[in-house]
């Protein structure tokens, strides 16, 4: 697997950073890949659009920042406006269906969306939206394996919430898998 650059964006409180962290942890601890996550710090990180930057690769990661993300997971309109132009040609864009209207989307972008907030609410906790998105991203990319992601979820979420988070992950994963099967282009990042 070559160098994959992932950007996860949303607004504060959606668990953007945690979902990036879990993805990186899954890759580097449970999937024997290399992962480097960079956190945005300072006043700019406390604004409404926040993001996590992650690199996942089979090779050691040298340059630490992302240049042109080929995978983007976006959970707010502002994050979409701000970040989606950075997406690499042919990149994969995953969005929260009810929170992001993907107008002016470039034709080369492969876009998939999921009503993650509704799914999370059905599970009884809106907070697990980020884990639904994580399951969705796991299914629609080859970044990390399902087991690795589940293992990383288990050790990264608050104790006592594991089952709820697994359920959220599975919902997102299943939803993603169905879209993947229907997708015309069969190679994924």
């Amino acid at each position: 697997m070559p160098r994959n650059e992932i950007k996860i964006g949303g607004f504060g409180g959606q668990g953007v950073i945690l979902s990036g962290y879990i993805l990186g942890r899954a890759a580097s601890i449970y999937d024997s890949k290399y992962a480097t996550m960079i956190q945005a710090f300072g006043p700019e990180a406390r604004g409404s659009a926040c993001s996590a930057q992650l690199i996942i690769s089979d090779e050691p990661i040298t340059y630490p920042y992302i240049v042109a993300p080929n995978v983007m997971v976006l959970m707010s309109q502002e994050a979409y406006s701000k970040f989606s132009p950075e997406l690499a040609p042919g990149g994969i864009l995953l969005t929260e269906e009810d929170l992001v209207a993907t107008h002016n989307l470039r034709a080369d972008v492969r876009h998939f969306s999921i009503p993650a907030t509704r799914i999370a609410e059905e599970l009884g906790k809106r907070l697990v939206l980020n884990i639904v998105m994580l399951g969705f991203a796991t299914a629609l990319t080859n970044l990390v394996g399902r087991d690795a992601a589940r293992n990383a979820v288990k050790v990264s979420v608050p104790k006592g919430t594991e089952e709820l988070n697994f359920a959220a992950f599975e919902k997102g994963y299943e939803y993603g898998l169905q879209l993947r099967e229907k997708a015309p282009e069969k190679t994924f990042a």
Partner: peptide, 10 residues
């Protein structure tokens, strides 16, 4: 440095 300090890796 800030980059290494805040960078998360295995």
């Amino acid at each position: 440095d800030e980059c290494v300090g805040h960078m998360i890796e295995r």
